[in-house]
Design a binder for these strands. Structure first.
Lengths: 233, 233
DNA sequence: AAATTTATTATGTAGCTACATAATTGTCAA
DNA sequence: TTGACAATTATGTAGCTACATAATAAATTT
């Protein structure tokens, strides 16, 4: 990684970050202009620019034209999450993946669903319930609505052999995705399917996707007790 | 945004993304080399490089030297989360922020804590319990361990007036942060403090931070019933 | 003194070149 | 056939220039 003469933009970034960490620049302080840092570190302004841009993306500093760069005085913890296809998630843990379709039928969406999609009107969609298994044990219970106007092909898919999760993600890329995380008590139905006790605290991942403005799917994925979501390294 | 003659790297990115979305390039397919795309779109290779890098960061494509660029065949949902200081979070919702210190005393860390910090030995740390309020109602109950070797100053801070959350984030920047999300049933103690019922499903945010290799703090933040974490737009 | 316009300044972006690096492919000898 | 080495190739990075853009500061007018 260019350990010799020239500094890479990542090295520049880390040096500047280090100065912030060590207290050289405190929250709210203004940093020197890119050009001055470049001169000091004997590198090009474009290198400093890339480094600063990365620190800005990471929520470490704030940059404004003419105003310069300053250390964020209201720091946020910014994290990146990866949510893979459930099959992959299970297999990456070295477990055997299993899948069961519970039900699949068209129905009128409740208001909570149209609300999530930011639709004014309720409409008919395909509702698919399915269970993902890890080494034969319940892992994730998903309750999904698929917009059959946007994705009519879903009606021809045999969802007993391919999960909607997998099929959609492989065949219907989305341009927008909203995620929502919360906790919920297990209903009698969920508890039975997830092999949990009624009232157990379940971690829920809710995902809504669109292609342009058109809804694709909304999933409520209830995870089995003990499930944890970690930030990627 | 340079709508005229030249294409910005974001426009290039969006065009390539669009082709993937429309099915021109399917998962697993190899895209043309940067130079060819540059020629086709009448822009510089560096512009395509920036666009591709962004798509790669976003988990849309995979790039390998010599191997070229291909559409990820195992797509992941990648999301960015912002977790602000609790005060800011409350105030951004237009609510009045409140804070109560419950307890603060040094104690021997249990194994679960040292495990999170990746420490071999148990050690004495400061344990701080506090309640964050939104419009006077319980919002987040935090149970925190602070490494007094790394952050000895914390012992001189009056934690009845300043929350450890705020003081640490303003004064002790971290170089590494691990996050963990899960659901948990309310214990009798938590239920009372959070104004919830015993056994209610609570959403928990667990955060561990380090400066270089040295532990700073580990917080278990139990949120009040109804709390939801959303991805930033 | 307030409002408007103009100049200044720091960051943002695009284009070009040159070279570094990692993978793969091809060649040749043992 | 296999192993080692060399050539090729596509991406990655750094440096430079030129100009765009936004925000502030200064100057000017009302």
């Amino acid at each position: 990684m260019m350990t010799g003469a020239r500094l890479s933009w990542k090295e520049v970034r880390d040096r500047i970050h280090q100065r912030i960490l060590s207290g050289d620049y405190a929250p709210g302080d203004r940093l020197p202009r890119d050009a001055d840092i470049a001169e000091e570190l004997h590198c090009a302004r474009s290198t400093v620019q890339r480094a600063m841009q990365d620190l800005s993306d990471g929520g470490i500093v704030e940059r404004r034209r003419k105003g310069g760069t300053r250390v964020r005085s209201d720091p946020v913890t910014r994290a990146t999450l990866d949510i893979p296809v459930t099959r992959t998630e299970v297999e990456q843990k070295g477990a055997r993946y299993g899948y069961q379709l519970i039900s699949s039928k068209t129905a009128m969406t409740p208001r909570s669903v149209t609300g999530n999609f930011e639709l004014a009107q309720r409409k008919e969609m395909l509702r698919v319930k399915a269970l993902h298994l890890s080494d034969g044990r319940p892992y994730i219970l998903e309750d999904r609505w698929v917009d059959t106007t946007t994705v009519p092909e879903i009606l021809d898919i045999d969802l007993t052999t391919v999960s909607a999760n997998e099929w959609l993600v492989q065949n219907k890329p989305y341009s927008r995705c909203d995620l929502r995380f919360y906790a919920e008590s297990a209903s009698p139905e969920s508890a039975e399917l997830l092999n949990a006790k009624i009232g157990d605290a379940l971690f829920v991942i809710e995902r809504t996707t669109w292609i342009d403005e058109a809804p694709i799917t909304l999933v409520r994925a209830q995870t089995a007790p003990g499930y944890q979501l970690l930030t990627r390294i």
